[in-house]
């Protein structure tokens, strides 16, 4: 009996493990099966470079949404990279035990705050502030600032790990040659940790591109090209979420096709960070 249980249990856990593989397969299958016919019907070039999205009139161009997603993401990266890297260096090299014990939970809690709460605070606190600069406040700028707070923890924690993983001997050699702590950080630690830091930025980018609800709440969602940071825009994710519940027919399939484009972005970013992290680990072992 116990031999039987021993043998059976092996297959049960293997089945459980295979489910994650099946899910990945199913996600790819369902989104491609629903989205591909739409891309074929609309035409890939027309779909990706078309500038007009009017499902009612059979016009499906998602270029404005691609530009909206890219603009909000880059805006957030410009803000989050210096902040996140600064925090990472502070946590890994400079802050004492007490400051670290205070800062780390703060970064962890930033991850835990639900995206709607970011959106809500953005709507009531940030949007009126941005309105003072011009426009109606619901803008790429507001979206970038909200996204910055959301991707800050990703950049901080992964960069911190990368800096921390640089062998001790590097620091000691540099300090022994008379370099200041900052010179050591800038010329020795940051270059040595660059793969990991790069991975953290790419992962942050992935989070920013995929964020949905907070974006819908602060970016304004109008389907047009943003020409300044104060302009309203719509993201790829927002386009899917806002319309899927009432769409049907080709319109619904076109939203799945939007999902394919989003998925392509994410897979490219994930693959880059996967290899960057692997390289960073290999470097530290060497």
């Amino acid at each position: 009996m116990r031999r039987f249980i021993d043998r059976a249990s092996r297959y049960v856990v293997l089945l459980a493990a295979s489910i994650s593989f099946l899910i990945l397969f199913a996600i790819a299958f369902f989104i491609i099966a629903r989205g591909l016919p739409a891309i074929q019907e609309i035409g890939l070039v027309e779909f990706v470079t078309g500038t007009v999205w009017r499902p009612g009139q059979g016009q499906y161009g998602i270029l404005p949404m691609i530009v909206g997603s890219v603009a909000a993401t880059f805006g957030s990266l410009i803000l989050a990279i210096p902040m996140g890297l600064g925090c990472a260096i502070l946590l890994a090299e400079i802050a004492g035990r007490r400051a670290r014990r205070f800062l780390r939970p703060v970064v962890e809690l930033l991850v835990g705050i639900p995206s709607v709460v970011y959106g809500l605070v953005g709507m009531v606190l940030l949007v009126p502030l941005v309105r003072n600069l011009g426009g109606n406040g619901y803008s790429v700028l507001a979206a970038s600032i909200v996204l910055m707070a959301m991707i800050l923890p990703t950049i901080t924690s992964i960069s911190e790990d990368a800096i921390r993983a640089v062998p001790r001997a590097y620091r000691e050699a540099s300090l022994a040659m008379g370099a200041t702590q900052w010179q050591t950080i800038r010329h020795v630690l940051l270059p040595a940790a660059r793969s990991g830091i790069g991975a953290s930025i790419v992962l942050g980018m992935g989070r920013a591109v995929g964020e949905t609800m907070a974006m819908i709440m602060v970016i304004g969602n109008s389907i047009k090209f943003p020409t300044s940071p104060l302009d309203s825009a719509r993201t790829l994710t927002g386009n899917i979420a806002l319309e899927i519940n009432y769409a049907s027919g080709l319109h619904e399939d076109a939203l799945f096709a939007t999902g394919i484009i989003l998925l392509v972005f994410i897979i490219i970013l994930n693959t880059i960070s996967f290899f960057a992290l692997r390289r960073s680990r290999a470097q530290n072992i060497a």
Binding site: A26, I27, F30, I31, L203, G206, R207, V209, G210, E211, T212, T237, I240, A241, I244, L255, F256, G259, L262, L263, I266, L269, N270, S273
Partner: peptide, 10 residues
């Protein structure tokens, strides 16, 4: 790494 909205779509 797949975003929440893609799971939603699925």
């Amino acid at each position: 790494g797949v975003p929440s909205i893609i799971y939603g779509l699925f």
